[in-house]
Amino acid sequence: MDSLISLIIFLVLLTLGYFIGRRREKRHYQSILEREKEYADMIILHEKKPPPGTSIPYVLVTGSVVVSSDYFKTFIAGLRNLVGGRVSAYESLLDRARREAILRMKEQARALRCNTVANVRIVTTSLSQGGKNQLGTVEVLAYGTAMVFIPEANKPAGPVRLGAQSKPVQRRV
């Protein structure tokens, strides 16, 4: 009887995780895509040195997000662990978190009226320790230096090169 009850609880959690988790993920992806379009004109660079033609303020901006996987994903990933290979359940979770963190960093930069963020770094940290083979809770942090880039300041090479880099990367959802 006890095992039956625990089986029912397990199945209920699994279906809850599957349906609610999927709906939330879909909604989140929709909002990410919308906001990515809105912030598509912002230049994000990995270069350590600011490109020529930039001006103050050079301010540190950060964006972070803490996400957790749902019950269904944890279960599927646990199964996947037996045979190895791509864990697509977690791939989408981390992809989502990373894009959200970058968007938040861009929001902060725009609030400072900046249009460029240089030397962007992305750090992922697992916050749940102890759970065996479990991803659980993850923090993704994106940070960089916000600045104002003026295209007129140097016509020859800068803007063309930067424009090519600023194209948003469209990924399969």
């Binding site: 972070s64 996400v67 996987s69 019950y71 809770t137």
Partner: peptide, 18 residues
Amino acid sequence: NIVGGELTAYTELLEESR
């Protein structure tokens, strides 16, 4: 952890601590 998604309380906490 059952339904997944962002943990806003943690995000704020970490932001504050940072």
